[in-house]
């Protein structure tokens, strides 16, 4: 029964949590998130208010965590942020078009396929999974956008997030962004 024991033992974990960050890092992360999402919210209220468009979606909050809080992570690099969101939104919209939003299969496939494609394109970005879900579950306002969803809010939004990441992170002596573009 060694196999069962090994299986259970894996659940105990083998390593330790990486170190926490100093207060400065906490502050900068928070400030970055505030600026990135704040700018998107401002743009939304000034540019798209009154139209059928939206600019701020929930998955951007997750991207903000990575771009302003885990600056060095491969998951937070522009290639991943832009690619991950674009691919996942395409998958999400396509899933709705093919299967409709009413079945359990649609969100499951949207997230599953997004994951595969993000891996395959080396654009893994966890918030992409949320973006795929939003395409499915985002309600009528999102669904009537169709493939426009990929451009606005997703394409426009990630550009703003990455741009703020470039401008803000590089202002700080201790930070640099990105680690790589491509």
């Amino acid at each position: 029964m060694g196999r069962v024991r090994d299986y259970v033992r894996k659940m105990a974990g083998t390593s330790i949590s990486p170190p926490g960050v100093d207060p400065g890092e906490m502050l900068f992360s928070g400030l970055g998130g505030f600026l990135g999402i704040g700018l998107l919210a401002l743009l939304e209220s000034h540019l798209v208010a009154g139209t059928d468009l939206v600019l701020l979606i929930g998955s951007f909050g997750a991207s903000a965590v990575l771009v302003y809080g885990v600056v060095k992570s491969p998951l937070a690099q522009p290639r991943n942020v832009v690619g991950g969101h674009l691919i996942s939104s395409l998958v999400g919209v396509t899933a709705v078009k093919l299967l409709g939003a009413g079945t359990w299969l649609t969100p499951a496939l949207a997230v599953g396929v997004s994951l595969i494609l993000m891996h395959a394109t080396r654009t893994l970005h966890p918030p992409g999974g949320a973006t795929a879900l939003i395409a499915v579950l985002g309600g009528p306002k999102i669904q009537q956008l169709g493939y426009l969803f990929v451009l606005v809010p997703v394409g426009a939004g990630v550009l703003v997030l990455v741009l703020v990441g470039l401008l803000f992170n590089n202002l700080l002596p201790r930070r640099r962004y990105p680690e790589f573009w491509w």
């Binding site: 990486p18 170190p19 600056v71 992570s73 930070r175």
Partner: peptide, 24 residues
């Protein structure tokens, strides 16, 4: 040791999303 890596990671500012175990 995990502790060595942990201490080294502490010297690098910013959150590193890798565990000492993976680094090892």
């Amino acid at each position: 040791g995990d502790e060595d890596i942990y201490e080294a990671m502490k010297e690098i500012p910013g959150y590193l999303d890798i565990t000492p175990g993976s680094f090892r």
